[in-house]
Every structure is written in C-alpha cells, then in structure tokens.
C-alpha cells in the first residue's frame, strides 16, 4: 500500500548575486509503503537533509509535492516524528520532561498519570530506565540520541523521519542503538525514512535503499531492494551470502558511480521511474551464478523498471 508519495520534488536556490538558479536536486520521485523502512544514501550536498526537511514540513520544495496518506504535506505535523541529527533536546529539561513536552503537545488534554505512563513506557523502550531525571548534559551522546528517539516515538507518528541519527556516535553505541531501533520498528511496524552515510547501517535497517547521485542536479539513481530476511541481526548479517553483493553494490555506487551518474546518466534512465535493483539475488539475465569470491563479476540484476 502506497503510504507516502513524492512527486517531481525539486529544490533550487537563486544565488544572492543573481545568475542561473542553483539546482540541488530535481525530479525526485519515490514512494514508501506502510510499515516500510527506507534509507537514503548519498554524498554530502546531494540534498538528502533537504528532502527529509521537506517531508517533515520544515522546508519548502521549489517544485513538486509530497502526499502522505492521501493528503498533501504543507507544514510540520504531529503525524511525522523527526529525530534530528544533533539530538535537539532542550538542555533545561530532564530526559523525561523532554519526552513529556512532546507527549503533552500530542495529547493536550491527557491527565498527568496518563502522560507520565506514556513517557515512562517510551523511555523504558529505549533502555533509559533510571536516567529519567537526568538533564541532557549529564547523559552520554548515545543516551541523548535515545531520548530523541523516545521523543519521536512517543507521539506515535504515522511516519518517522531520522536525519543521520547515529552519525555522531561511536561504533559500539551505534550498534546497540541500531539493534534497539530494529526491535522497536519490528514491534510497532513503524514507517521510517532515514538518512545515513553508513552502508552497513543501511543494509541492517532498511528494506529499500535509495541511492542519490551527487549534487548539484542530484537525482535518485536507483533503488536497491534489501533482499536479506527481515529478521536480520547485526551479529549474523555479514554471514549471509547476499550481504557482500549488496554491500559492494552500495559502496561501488558511492565511490564511483554516484559521480558518473550526474555527469552522464545511463541510457534509458527515467528519473520518474528509477530502477529497482536486487544485487543480493542471483542475476536473472544473463544466467551466470553469483560467485561469492567475485561478487562484482555480474551486473546487478534488474528486477523491474516498473514504477515503485
């Protein structure tokens, strides 16, 4: 079921001294189904954060529109919870009060016991039991980010937008919170749109990975379907034979193809209908078996050119 639909999104700036407008991205089209976890990967400057801000309603597109659950997105709304890059907690409030601020905004007439119960439930969910009354300054980076996640989840949004939420964390903490997020999303069937720079993170969390070419004039080059089973875990994921083909495909895109793509899109490329690829699966044509020793020996298989 198509839940979120993005059509012909464009962002451009007119330079302050005049001249041709600077197009960050253009003709961005994609859709997200209910309960789907979608990651967007691309180099800095391709406009990922801008797309997320437009989805959140915090920024305005120069052209195109965003439709969520049959309604056009025209501004910020409680339907979309945002986890900000720099946690964005209010430092004068304790962890619990930060979540409470969101809960009270969502349910204005809820009584104290009810809001308290909701806050506690979501703080427990992200593993912050016992740290409720600490101010952000007393919390570690990972804990702050968890409060941010609890705050976004607590308003029970229809969709969650995550702007590189783990970028500033060390690898160990990041792993722990990724597991946490995976568990929560599996339990709540949350629809998620997430920005990341981390290829492994994308493979672990996402069902679909959108690859953006380099800006200016960035596009969605292709959409990688994560064919790994949904119950994947951080500890076993790299043992799956599909893991490295997918990973190599993503890394290959980021290292070289993202740049080439902007300079010269491949023939037959239609920005309104980016290719859906499944590098994890053996290629359909030509029927050469995917070798684990040389995973890049075959071209990524193309499932369909159908509009996703």
């Amino acid at each position: 079921m198509e839940f979120l639909k993005v059509e012909g999104l464009k962002k451009s700036f007119v330079p302050p001294r005049g001249g041709a407008p600077f197009v960050v991205f253009d003709e961005v089209n994609f859709s997200i189904d209910k309960g789907e976890f979608v990651c967007i990967v691309g180099h800095s400057g391709c406009g990922k954060s801008t797309i997320l801000n437009i989805l959140a309603g915090l920024d305005e597109a120069s052209d195109g529109n965003v439709i969520m659950a049959g309604r056009e997105v025209a501004g910020p709304s409680l339907d979309r919870g945002v986890v900000f890059q720099g946690h964005a907690l209010m430092p004068w409030l304790t962890a619990k009060k930060n979540v409470e601020f969101a809960v009270k905004s969502r349910w204005r007439d809820a009584n104290c016991a009810k809001t308290d119960e909701i806050c506690q439930r979501y703080l427990d969910m992200v593993g912050l039991t016992g740290s409720e009354d600490k101010k952000p300054a007393e919390l570690s980076g990972g804990m702050k980010q968890r409060v941010g996640i609890a705050r976004a989840f607590a308003i029970e949004p229809k969709m969650l937008l995550l702007d590189e939420p783990f970028g500033a964390l060390d690898a160990l903490t990041r792993g722990v919170i990724q597991d946490e997020l995976l568990k929560i999303c599996a339990a709540t069937h949350q629809t998620v749109f997430m920005i990341t720079h981390d290829v492994d993170e994308a493979i672990l969390l996402a069902d679909k990975i959108m690859l953006m070419s380099n800006g200016p004039n960035a596009r969605i080059a292709e959409i990688v379907v994560n064919t790994l089973p949904r119950d994947r875990s951080r500890h076993t994921i790299h043992k799956d034979p599909q893991y490295y083909p997918i990973r190599n495909h993503l890394v290959d895109f980021l290292v070289s193809r993202s740049k080439e793509f902007t300079e010269q899109p491949p023939p037959g490329y239609d920005p309104r209908n980016p290719l859906l690829v499944t590098p994890g699966l053996p290629a359909v044509t030509p029927a050469i078996p995917v070798s684990l020793v040389q995973p890049r020996a075959t071209a990524p298989s193309v499932v369909a050119g159908i509009r996703n």
Partner: peptide
C-alpha cells in the same frame, strides 16, 4: 537555536506554549 524551534514546529506547539516553554 533553530533546532529547538524546529522541534516545537514538528510538535505543532501553540505560539504561547512555544514562547513560554
């Protein structure tokens, strides 16, 4: 900070509540 205001915006906080809280 812009990000705190953005938090308030995404939570559809009323202007008075935004000013005081």
């Amino acid at each position: 900070r812009r990000e705190w205001l953005n938090v308030a915006r995404t939570l559809e906080v009323t202007p008075m509540r935004k000013a005081f809280r």
